[in-house]
Write a protein that binds this DNA or RNA. Structure first.
Lengths: 220, 220
DNA sequence: TCAACTCTGTGAACTTCTTCACAATCGGGT
DNA sequence: ACCCGATTGTGAAGAAGTTCACAGAGTTGA
């Protein structure tokens, strides 16, 4: 009775994509039905958490039975709009950008990289996999046709803010930002940040004084 | 008086790396002193949040004055152990692995990629930038010498769990995981996950029925 | 038909994180 | 020497997220 009205906690949304991945595996294994208790056992995510996450979007299971894997999978995909093509612009044809174009996970989830931009004239015109690298200056013009609403920012930090503004100007309202800085964008634009260094720093912090395990190994 | 005893909230740790990045910028601009109010103005992070985050680790500022940029920068780097070399193993010499080896941000923060492994015999022996790609089977043997405690997992999903176990067996106790699955590891091991698809899915969800901005543009 | 069992959906309790608000401190000006 | 404006560090309030615990719905078997 909660269904999708009020607003959904961000952690719930983040977990939804995990559930989807997990359900796709179960489907592959021909599992038809799953209970929240089994989800907890197999993924480590608390069963009540799983149920409550789903409850934000309606009722998905049958008491006494559990959840139909195929149905749940497809309903989550629908919630996340992963059941329709999403056109995505990529800015930055460096190492990272190149890796993203080649990453098969995007296509699998219907994210379609429709154009790659760079401002480096030695790259413009070349191909990155099957996409021609376009002049960053043509961003707005090109997206007037493509009408992508998602953008990936894989440029150096100093360029990121101005490129973000270019993306917004070109009609993009969701940005995945790989540059290590906080982007300032208009309120209607949603930004998600991915920072390798931040993640490594958190790991580094946890490398406390615990002795490495090596010494404990005693092997024949 | 809170200093570093109790345990630190995860969101605080995540923000610490951002503060560091920001402080390095300020240092470059020759800013000597900064107040929490200025931090809020420039980064959007609430001033009280900034102060409380720091308070978990001691006292860093002077009332009526603010924080000394250089000192704060170096103390945060110390907290995160970014003031000393951290040796890191990379597993997976694909597109993503390759991009990571070439990513300058790692070296800048003293993360030192000391070895790259892959199980693909057509890759083993080749060079990725300046590092030779080693046989994944030699992971433990090699790390007995290198003694890295951090590992980056940039392998396909199906291989990730077993490679993670290999890393742990080789003495690694911090893992940065790029494969879209929940790794099962012993309790002393810390894992951070980076999932492009998850991030894009969250963005995709937010692409609600708002009309794209294109139509609103009325240009000469 | 009914009893025994399973499992969902959710209010309520609990835990964690964020923000407020203010006493305590500092530095500068006179 | 003292006052005044600025700014910190932190208890306490508030908001957000997680987990508990149970009523109620469904299923199975006799």
């Amino acid at each position: 009775m909660n269904a999708s009205n009020g607003k959904v906690p961000m952690p719930t949304l983040e977990r939804l994509a995990n559930y989807l991945r997990y359900l796709l595996d179960l489907e592959q294994e021909r599992v038809e039905t799953i209970s929240s208790a089994e989800v907890e056992q197999q993924t480590g995510i608390n069963a009540a958490q799983f149920r409550k996450d789903l409850s934000y979007f309606g009722e998905f299971g049958k008491p006494g039975v559990g959840y139909n894997v195929a149905e749940l999978q497809s309903r989550i995909a629908h919630i996340l709009k992963l059941d329709q093509e999403q056109r995505v612009l990529l800015v930055g044809a460096g190492n990272l950008g190149s890796a993203l174009v080649g990453y098969p996970g995007l296509k699998e989830h219907r994210f379609n990289l429709v154009a790659v931009f760079d401002n480096n004239y030695s790259k413009i015109g070349r191909k990155l996999w099957d996409l021609e690298i376009l002049d960053l200056g043509r961003l707005k013009e090109v997206n007037a046709v493509l009408r992508a609403r998602m953008g990936i920012l894989a440029v150096p930090r100093v360029a990121a803010q101005s490129v973000a503004e270019g993306l917004v100007d070109a009609g993009v309202d969701s940005i995945l930002n790989f540059a290590p800085l906080i982007l300032r964008v208009p309120p209607h634009v949603v930004v998600r940040n991915v920072s390798f260094v931040q993640e490594l720093a958190v790991l580094s912090y946890h490398l406390s004084s615990e002795p490495p395990q090596h010494a404990l190994d005693a092997k024949g």
